[in-house]
């Protein structure tokens, strides 16, 4: 979701993007639940400071709550590799290793989700599109991104209009799941039809307005950048690269933990443990 247009954005979108990518990469490379939780909390604090917490909190909750629940059930109750059994109910077995695994995964995903949501809730998409087009990213990419965000409310408005029109024609919405499914089908047809027809019209309008990517584009919008931000981006990306390289080379100090065995068993070409 784009930030409202009237809030002052002090930072260049590339700076916040670099910070988000570096944050996610370093957290993944460090791979410690304490660090992950610290990153997630730091993001929450930043969200409060930049005034997006009210919109970010429900978005994050919708993603993380079912995920955490799913992890807790999945690994908390069923973790065949676990040794330290805390409770045993036949098929379901609570193990310390399983809980630890769920905590690790839950914390790391929380950090990842918070970092990127903070970016997307604070970035101004028109600015992002403008800097991308200045960096020779194909203009089509910026188009798809900006247009999707513009079209989403327009399409939900259109769907509401179709629903009203069809109710007025005698379609009773509601009832059993099959009736609901049939109603959805009837709404999808005019929705998709008019969306495709509108899109065909828009394609010709875009062509006529010179949008074919064959010429270098300029941008009406001027997005400020500073030397300090450029330096920060370079440092953040270098740190991320270093952390990833360290992890991949196997030089990272190993934390002790239970080993999961036999993941390759499913695969005929699997390497023996």
């Amino acid at each position: 979701m784009p930030a409202p247009l009237n809030t002052p954005a002090a930072l260049n979108p590339l700076t916040t993007l670099a910070a988000a990518v570096a944050g996610a990469a370093i957290t993944t490379a460090v791979s410690s639940w304490a660090v992950s939780l610290a990153v997630a909390l730091a993001c929450a604090a930043l969200a409060v400071r930049s005034g997006v917490a009210g919109r970010l909190a429900p978005a994050a909750a919708v993603i993380l709550a079912p995920f955490w629940l799913s992890l807790l059930v999945m690994h908390g109750l069923f973790f065949p590799e676990g040794r330290t059994v805390l409770a045993d109910w036949g098929a379901a077995r609570v193990t310390a290793e399983g809980l630890r695994f769920a905590l690790d995964m839950g914390a790391r995903t929380a950090a990842y989700v918070m970092v990127f949501l903070l970016f997307s809730f604070t970035v101004r998409v028109p600015d992002l599109v403008a800097v991308m087009s200045a960096r020779r990213v194909p203009p089509q990419f910026g188009y798809v991104l900006a247009s999707t965000l513009t079209l989403a409310p327009a399409i939900s408005g259109k769907l509401a209009r179709i629903r009203r029109a069809q109710e007025s024609r005698g379609l009773v919405l509601g009832g059993g799941p099959l009736r609901r499914l049939a109603a959805v089908r009837l709404q999808m047809v005019p929705l998709v039809l008019s969306l495709i027809e509108d899109a065909g019209e828009r394609a010709q309008a875009l062509d006529a307005r010179g949008f074919n990517g064959s010429r270098a584009r300029t941008s009406y919008r001027d997005v400020p950048d500073t030397a300090a931000q450029r330096a920060f981006r370079a440092v953040a990306l270098l740190l991320a690269a270093a952390a990833v390289a360290l992890r991949l080379s196997g030089q990272w100090p190993q934390l002790q933990g239970p080993q999961l065995q036999g993941f390759a068993m499913l695969w005929p070409l699997g390497v023996p443990a």
């Binding site: 247009l5 998409v125 028109p126 599109v129 087009s133 203009p139 910026g142 188009y143 900006a146 247009s147 513009t150 079209l151 828009r202 309008a205 875009l206 307005r209 010179g210 949008f211 074919n212 010429r215 584009r217 300029t218 941008s219 009406y220 919008r221």
Partner: peptide
């Protein structure tokens, strides 16, 4: 274009291209 966030940017779209 559906990508211009203001009237000014919408007018400028053809010139940007």
């Amino acid at each position: 274009s559906t990508v211009g966030s203001t009237v000014a940017e919408e007018l400028a779209f053809g010139l940007e291209n």
